[in-house]
Each structure stands twice: as structure tokens, then as C-alpha cells.
């Protein structure tokens, strides 16, 4: 087990209190239940962004997370609608399938580095969208609609998760589910980073040849990391499909892939919780600017550029002292 400092325990407790008690209370008090949906989206995007962050951790720029999110969403949707499988079973299957595809695709493309890898993952997103349009099982541009809400999950007759369609507020249920998933994702991420694997990843980030010369099995690690990353993407996408109750080829596009990358950059690549913060800021920033109407995009992109100009190492670099050349 990891030993956490008392400060970290306090932080963890504050996180739980905030997410599971204070936020629902505020929402209940203000009556704005639509905020549940917004926060759920933030949580899911943060899960997918966590995967992107992990590939950054081995020194690869991943702009292909949208592809795996789309894949996860379709796998879960097809299993639930065509095979009548329970959503709770289809969720891990969607993640595992995305990881499996990531291994197949990763074998050739993970040999690429730097800009080459960034470009091919970007192309990958576009290709998955095109594939979803062309294949018969995905139902083309019409997509898969009216996916049923997640059903009951019970073990030995004890109900663990109630049937979502019987709840009076399924959005709240989705919110709690996502919060738990997000917590698990980031706990796993933290565990990976602070383990032997994390050390090996950092050594690869700095110099792959050197790492391999001292006995690090780099081809194994990069495929493992890419698979974990895509697993997160698949889970996030599957959950998204279930909440929206529909999946279209345009559910996750190139712009979404770029946004996942932006979340990581904005939060800061050196910090595990960077992508979570980045997602929150970007998503709410975009929502707040909605008031500006047609100037929304203009102001949003200008802010991005200005932010990049003055804080090129991410938001969290404000608080923490700069580590000299940590990225190189």
C-alpha cells in the first residue's frame, strides 16, 4: 500500500466531502439539476483525459483518445441494444476491447515518436469516425439511439446499484457513478505514477535509448501504457453513450481528441491531477462564455492563446515551484 502524508489524507477527505456531499447539497439547494449533467460530463472527459496524460508520461503526444472513446461508446451500445447485455458488464468489456484494439494498433504506431506519433493518432481519430460511418453494425450516420438506461446490478440477491430507470433522478445517479469512476481512475493513475512502472515511464520520457540500454523493456511498457490509456478512453466513452442514450459517429471527433490533449496541457503535464483541473476549467470556461453568443469561440480561443503565452507549463505550475527542465 502507498503511504500518504497527513496533508494528502486531508486533501482526499476534502475531495470526497466536496464531490459526494457538498456539490449535491448545493445543487439540491439551488434546484439546478442540470448541473449534475455538466459535472458528469466533466468527470467523464477527465477520465478520458487521464488516459491521454498517461501517454504523455511516456513521452508520447496522444491525440487519438477520441477514437477509443468512440470505440468504447459503440461497443457498450451494441452490447446493450443488440445482445441485451447489462450495462455494468458492457462497461468493462468496452474498456477492455478499447485496450485490445490499442494493443493491435499500438504495435506498429508506438514505434513512432514525437510529432509522427501525434500526427498518426490524430489521423486515427478521423479514421474511426469514418469507419463508424461505413460499417453496417454501427448503423452509419444515423447512429445507435434509445439505448436503455443502466439496469440493476445485484450480487447474490443484494442490490448494489438500483435500476436507473426506476430512480426519480437518474442524472444524480449518473453523477455519483461518474464520481466513483473518476476517483478510481485517478487513484489508479496515482498508483501507477508512484510505482516501479512510474519510474520506468519517467526514464522513457527522458531518453528511450538510455532506458532500454539499462534494461527497461520499452516496447512492452509503451504498449501497456497505451492500452491502459485507451482503457480509460473506452470507459469514458461507454459511460457517455449511456448518459446521452445515443451514439453517433460524430459523438467523438478530431476536435474532441484535441480537447483531451488540451485538458492535459492546461492542467500541466507534470501533475497527476492536472488533467482533472484542466477539464474542469476548459469545460466551465466554455460554458461561461456561452453568454457571449457568436463571440464565444473567439474569446475562448484568445484566452487559450493568452494562457499559453503566459503559463506555457500549465495551470498547476502557478502553485508549485518550477522543476528545472522536468519535461526534457
Amino acid at each position: 500500500m502507498l503511504k500518504l502524508t497527513s496533508l494528502q489524507w486531508i486533501g482526499l477527505a476534502a475531495f470526497f466531502l466536496g464531490v459526494f456531499v457538498i456539490v449535491p447539497m448545493i445543487i439540491a439547494a439551488s434546484g439546478r439539476t442540470d448541473l449534475f449533467f455538466t459535472l458528469t460530463s466533466v468527470g467523464l472527459l477527465a477520465i478520458a483525459s487521464a488516459g491521454v496524460w498517461l501517454t504523455f508520461y511516456i513521452g508520447r503526444i496522444n491525440i487519438g483518445q477520441g477514437a477509443f472513446a468512440l470505440l468504447g461508446a459503440y461497443v457498450s451500445a451494441i452490447l446493450v441494444t443488440k445482445a441485451g447485455m447489462s450495462f455494468w458488464l458492457s462497461l468493462p468489456i468496452a474498456g477492455l476491447f478499447a485496450a485490445f484494439v490499442a494493443v493491435l494498433i499500438g504495435l506498429p504506431i508506438l514505434r513512432l515518436r514525437g510529432v509522427y506519433f501525434a500526427m498518426i493518432t490524430l489521423v486515427l481519430t478521423q479514421v474511426f469516425t469514418l469507419t463508424a460511418l461505413a460499417l453496417p453494425i454501427t448503423n452509419g450516420a444515423k447512429g445507435i439511439t434509445s439505448i436503455p438506461l443502466p439496469g440493476e446490478l445485484s450480487i447474490l440477491g443484494i442490490t448494489l446499484i438500483p435500476d436507473f430507470s426506476t430512480l426519480e433522478n437518474p442524472r444524480q445517479a449518473f453523477y455519483f457513478t461518474t464520481a466513483v469512476l473518476m476517483f478510481l481512475t485517478y487513484a489508479a493513475l496515482y498508483r501507477i505514477v508512484n510505482s516501479r512502472l512510474g519510474h520506468l515511464c519517467r526514464s522513457m520520457q527522458q531518453n528511450e535509448e538510455l532506458a532500454s540500454s539499462i534494461g527497461v523493456n520499452i516496447s512492452y511498457i509503451r504498449i501497456l501504457i497505451f492500452a491502459i490509456s485507451s482503457f480509460f478512453g473506452g470507459i469514458g466513452g461507454a459511460m457517455f453513450g449511456s448518459i446521452a442514450q445515443s451514439v453517433y459517429p460524430s459523438s467523438f471527433q478530431v476536435a474532441d481528441s484535441v480537447n483531451f490533449m488540451l485538458n492535459c496541457f492546461l492542467g500541466g503535464l507534470g501533475y497527476v491531477f492536472g488533467p482533472m483541473l484542466g477539464t474542469l476549467v476548459l469545460y466551465f470556461g466554455w460554458d461561461l462564455l456561452f453568454e457571449l453568443g457568436k463571440y464565444q469561440m473567439l474569446v475562448y480561443s484568445s484566452l487559450l492563446i493568452i494562457l499559453m503565452l503566459f503559463l506555457p507549463n500549465g495551470l498547476l505550475s502557478l502553485r508549485l515551484p518550477k522543476k528545472g527542465g522536468s519535461g526534457k
Binding site: F265, K294, M297, Y300, S302, P312, N313, K322, G327
Partner: peptide, 28 residues
């Protein structure tokens, strides 16, 4: 940005921001 950033990749975010910016300008 190249001068200040500790990682090369930061320019990618800037470029992506510019892409959004141009899209917005063209739209307007």
C-alpha cells in the same frame, strides 16, 4: 512560447488554439 516553455509540445497547444481562433474569425 518556445523560449519560455519547458517542453516542446506546448507549441502544439498554441497551434491548436490558433486553429480555433482562425475558425472563429472566419466564421465572424
Amino acid at each position: 512560447v518556445i523560449r519560455r516553455s519547458s517542453r516542446d509540445e506546448s507549441t502544439m497547444l498554441l497551434a491548436a488554439g490558433l486553429a480555433f481562433f482562425f475558425d472563429a474569425v472566419i466564421l465572424l
